[in-house]
Design a protein around this nucleic acid. Structure first.
Lengths: 212, 212
DNA sequence: TGTTGACACGAACATGCGTTCTCTCCTATG
DNA sequence: CATAGGAGAGAACGCATGTTCGTGTCAACA
């Protein structure tokens, strides 16, 4: 009763694989024929053992009522965010509304603890160019933004600087009628600009860099 | 036949909700009783309509053989990576083996397209301090590493510099018996050090910064 | 050597659950 | 008014699938 037998482990793996391929759990007989087990009762026996160990949950009487305790629940709080375009220094930021009809080809999945609130109003952009190294953001990174036209002091936001015709990511501080834009890189100096020159496009929620 | 009727939409939503709660799809009769439909044939009828529209797939004869075409397949490939410790300039990097028994409290979930290979051998560390800004990595970022003691030229790796007693993240180039460590930040200069002074701890796979 | 308990067989058995067939009840169309 | 087709009701049918039961094997053990 202590150890998970080889056969039980194989069953567990098969269930996992099956779930990946089919969206619904396997039947006892699926498991049986896959693993070359002679009887359904043997599968039932081992399934009971796995359940006693807390590795799976079984809903009696219900067809395909096998649930994996591990992933299962964790996999839920995953948010899928569409990558709707690029962000570069010299271009305005695409916002979700712009591409209404066009279906997005690329998406990013993140655990909801990385984005809090279930991903509502979030969108992602791929960074083009090295213009945002002062925000510790590299060419090719994916930035995830929450669409909003205003922001609190201290939040990192994507802003469009009208005069410079330039997009940038900085911490935002309204000081009188001036705005101080503070780079995330502590070694770099802030820039100051009149409040009416900045147009907040969204708040920076997450940055993902994938060095594959 | 053009429009998705109110009832069909309700069915679709219910299937989705059911899947969230149970890990296995509902039966026709589940749908029936939930929506207060009088007959299973009505459900079957509407399900066929939804399938014709390509919104679901049904595996005939198979119990609970309903699959949602939208999410379903995409949301599965999510990898859960344990955050096993911190990484700071002056400390050796914890490696997975170190904390065998201790159960990890924090994890990070990422879509598998961000980490390729199904997350085998991956672990995550939270960055402490500003020592890695030259790698465009900030205090509080989470770096995801693949454990390996060797690496190819051009890969970004976490190395332990014996003489300096220091951990750093750089691109690695072996040049003769020297190693060139190139910061990701294009504006910064590489450092050179003897090959025997560097100890590769892992390859950088992904960086995640969460500005909540 | 006999007993016990984990593990495995096969074959019924009893439901779970998808499918199908026959009838209504509409609303639109002519 | 007659007809046709979409949407639904109700019941029966039958394969799909979980459950149970009687046996058999093999190692550990007293």
């Amino acid at each position: 009763m202590k150890t998970v037998s080889r056969r039980q482990q194989a069953i567990l793996q098969f269930i996992e694989r099956f779930l990946d391929e089919n969206d619904y759990p396997p039947t006892i007989r699926d498991i049986q024929s896959e693993l070359g087990i002679s009887s359904t009762s043997v599968v039932d026996y081992n399934l009971k053992a796995l359940e006693a160990r807390g590795l799976i949950r079984r809903n009696s009487k219900i067809s395909r009522g096998i649930e994996l305790m591990n992933r299962g629940s964790t996999r839920r709080n995953v948010v899928t965010i569409p990558v709707i375009g690029q962000i570069a220094a010299g271009q305005p930021i695409p916002v979700p509304g712009d591409l209404e009809g066009s279906d997005v080809t690329e998406t990013v999945e993140l655990g909801s603890d990385l984005v809090r609130n279930s991903g509502q109003g979030l969108f992602a952009l791929r960074v083009k160019g090295h213009s945002m190294v002062d925000a510790l953001i590299n060419d090719g990174d994916v930035v995830i933004l929450k669409q909003q036209e205003t922001c609190e002091n201290g939040e990192t936001v994507a802003v469009w600087l009208k005069d410079q015709r330039e997009t940038t990511l900085k911490r935002f501080y309204l000081e009188g009628d001036q705005v101080r834009l503070q780079p995330a890189n502590v070694t770099m100096d802030p820039i100051f600009t009149p409040a009416e020159n900045v147009e907040v496009q969204g708040r920076l929620v997450t940055v993902v860099r994938s060095d594959l």
